[in-house]
Nucleic acid binder design. Structure first.
Lengths: 331, 331
DNA sequence: ACCACCACGGTAATCGATTTCCCACGGAAC
DNA sequence: GTTCCGTGGGAAATCGATTACCGTGGTGGT
């Protein structure tokens, strides 16, 4: 059970018979301290089980050695992979990455941003829920600390951005698909997400640019459930033999699950392509062809943005394609 | 770009022509304030873009309305599902759940615990990395705040625990398997994890208890890569027709992927059973039979533990079984 | 008329650390 | 012997909020 009150620096100072200044200097190594006193202080701290109160420290100092990350949802494996890579990237320079899930809601997202700003984080990484409606949160964040949008962005804010070129991803898909099937004769269907996030938006645009402005499109959200439903519609509408390009691996996995469940064969009858390159894509059978985002490099890029706090800047990475077994090998 | 300094209560008080006490009372509603002054204050706060500094508040108050969660790894979908459900559970009573990933390392785990304790969280939820070696972190946490171990635990600490009965899970598996195949004649293999976490430990024990003390066992870690490798060994060792029980869905999915990749049929030639009930289990083809943990109820249970801070207590939930297509239907 | 009480504003203490400023002491330089 | 400088300790200011305490003025009861 929590003891009545945990030891403070004043307690340590009293027990060691020195001033709090000496305790602080000993423990943080900010200035040299007489070795004899050092010993007394560390001993006293040990005896009392003293732990620094970061709240007190944060109030006095400007830096907190903390970076906040607000994600729309932790259930989405792509976001949790980003969170994991970011923690790892920040672990090395001794910065704590704290993660907050917005649970898909704009209000909760705003709460997360307020919370991190109030905690005086050194920087804030944000995957905005909505391309337009998240603007107030991003702007508020950017006004207070160095803010980096990740994967998705709202335009016209003073925040940095790190992500992949979604159009380039779709171009890769087009090249891959065109190398194997005759795109002008075989049907291609896009199962995407409603364009209220920049990634959904840009992938849809890329699809229209590199395939055709009037490629058949089904729009839902970034979930496997939506993938299943879309696959059901594709079957119902009689799109036999279609190549199904999707906006995300989770959608693609839903599509694939439904097709296989209905006894359709992939890649013979249908072909399926994903986007993101999450781990589960390689586990599917047949394994999913997908556009892989360089998550680790993106995380490192964010770390360097945070460490050298220059002007806000943006960086687009090039995705690459992972050839799985849901699409035919190039001839 | 961050402005020179953001507005404080003193700034608001000056602009509104009142004292900081009045500002505080107006903004937090702790005591009634004359409506005219309230207007002046909110107007001034608005004009200055005032945001409360939670660090200042936290220092003065005892509560921070914050709960910390330390997970071993965010890439594991079971842990990220727990994190997501917990955020949701705490969102309602206005408590911020902050997540820290230990990245599989004891040192990083210790850092996460220290960090949260230093930040004066109201409670700490912890999925310990190691059954024995995480003991110092759990003990340190329990000495300072209400600490709840989740899913895994170290014994003999003053911390609460919430999880499922792993043995009961294995009993369900045994009943299900025995209903379909003759367990005394058909081989059963367990693909588990080295017992350095209580869950790996208990599942292995349950396996031995409900199947046989000398059930063949392969031990690795909680990853799909290990599942693949184990499946390769099973094939190499000629365990044809085996029922493969695993310690986790991620392992089971790896096993399944490898078997299918090698052209083996499931559930005809091999049967596969998972544990946890992650979303991806239902997406596999054939869909994975698995022991489902009641994640949402566990999250709610933790919330109620935190809200009513009684004595530390433990709660074991009963898992249930989800019948997929990787095991034969009961006759 | 008096007193109890309520409503509400302001002053200052408080939380726990860091850091500035000042001071004492000892040795080196000349 | 005096000045100068470096080392290192301690007192107190500081960060930004909340809140205990005090004071004042008004109201209602008797």
């Amino acid at each position: 059970m929590p003891p009545s009150r945990s030891a403070t620096m004043a307690d340590v100072a009293r027990l060691a018979g020195v001033s709090v200044a000496t305790v602080s200097r000993t423990l943080s190594g900010t200035r040299s301290v007489d070795p004899a006193m050092q010993r007394k202080v560390t001993e006293a701290a040990e005896r009392l089980g003293y732990r620094v109160n970061l709240v007190g420290r944060a109030l006095r100092q400007t830096r907190t050695s903390t970076v906040g990350l607000v994600v729309p949802d932790l259930d989405n494996p792509y976001f949790s992979a980003l969170a994991q890579q970011l923690s790892r990237a920040f672990s090395d320079p001794g910065i704590d990455l704290l993660v907050f899930s917005a649970d898909g809601s704009l209000e909760t997202e705003a709460r997360g941003v307020r919370s991190f700003l109030g905690r005086q984080v050194d920087a804030l990484v944000l995957i905005p829920v909505h391309e337009q409606l998240s603007e107030p949160s991003v702007t508020a964040a950017a006004a207070a600390v160095h803010t980096i949008q990740l994967d998705r962005r709202v335009q016209g804010t003073a925040a940095s951005y790190v992500g992949v070129s979604n159009r380039a991803g779709m171009q890769l898909v087009r090249e891959h698909v065109a190398a194997a099937v005759d795109v002008s004769r075989q049907p291609v269907v896009y199962v995407g997400a409603t364009p209220d996030s920049s990634s959904a938006h840009e992938r849809l645009d890329g699809m229209r640019q590199y395939f055709s402005p009037d490629v058949p499109v089904l729009l839902g959200d970034f979930s496997a459930a939506w993938g299943r439903e879309a696959a059901a519609r594709i079957l119902a509408d009689g799109w036999t033999g279609a190549t199904i390009v999707t906006a995300a691996d989770v959608i693609a996995l839903g599509v694939l699950a439904h097709l296989l469940h209905e006894g359709r064969s992939v890649p013979d009858e249908f072909r399926v392509v994903g986007f993101d390159g999450i781990g589960a894509a390689a586990l599917a059978h047949p394994s999913l062809t997908t556009v892989r985002q360089p998550v680790e490099e993106m995380a490192r890029s964010i770390r360097s943005l945070v460490e050298s706090d220059d002007e806000p800047s943006s960086r687009w990475f090039k995705p690459d394609i992972v050839f799985g077994a849901t699409s035919p090998a190039a001839p």
